[in-house]
């Protein structure tokens, strides 16, 4: 069936109100949220906290950078996704640092997506190490992106159960090696 164009009063009105910026979106949403039991003040506070976390002046040492990164992600990533996110992040590190060939064999698309995520991580860490205040707001945006990308990657790459099992085994192996190394150098 072929569609043809028609003038619509509704679309014209929505265009004028939304697109031309003449809208009271917040007033309407507050009234709706009140009826449906959404706590607007809590939502606002959540956004403020995310922002405040990022306004903290970036620390100088690499260790503190990572700590800050972790704190920020804790606020940003929803609790339901956090464990999966951490697992995936560790897998990204492992495969891109040590096992690119393995990932390539399993899924050609995977290595491309992981490489881009990895590049972004490096970029964020580099910016954090520089630490000037004016970079901080840019980093907020970078984290929104990485959050969306990781969720998308988790959903869309369709990591097979076999692949997940293999990653888990590799990570266990990685932990064992780390423990052995720690014992060798006498670290706790």
């Amino acid at each position: 069936m072929e569609n043809s164009e028609e003038y619509s009063f509704t679309i014209n009105l929505f265009g004028k109100v939304f697109y031309e910026g003449n809208f009271s979106e917040l007033r309407k949403q507050k009234a709706i949220w009140k009826v449906f039991g959404v706590d607007y003040e809590a939502e606002k506070q959540k956004q403020q906290e995310i922002w405040d976390t990022f306004k903290i002046k970036a620390p100088r040492s690499a260790f503190k950078h990572r700590l800050m990164l972790k704190q920020y992600l804790k606020v940003l990533i929803p609790p339901s996704k956090r464990r999966e996110y951490e697992e995936f992040r560790r897998a990204v590190y492992w495969h891109l640092r040590h096992r690119p060939d393995f990932a390539r064999r399993v899924d050609v698309k995977l290595i491309d997506r992981l490489a881009r995520i990895w590049a972004l991580w490096l970029l964020i860490e580099e910016k954090l190490s520089l630490g000037p205040d004016d970079q901080i707001s840019k980093l907020t945006d970078a984290f929104y992106k990485i959050d969306a990308m990781l969720s998308k990657a988790l959903e869309e790459l369709e990591i097979t159960p076999k692949m997940r099992k293999k990653i888990a085994e590799d990570l266990k192996e990685d932990d064992k090696i780390t423990e052995q190394l720690k014992r060798l150098i006498g670290a706790k």
């Binding site: 069936m1 043809s4 164009e5 028609e6 003038y7 619509s8 679309i11 265009g15 697109y19």
Partner: peptide, 9 residues
């Protein structure tokens, strides 16, 4: 069918 268009995507 006649349908309107939207140009504020």
């Amino acid at each position: 069918m006649k349908v309107p268009t939207v140009n504020f995507s």
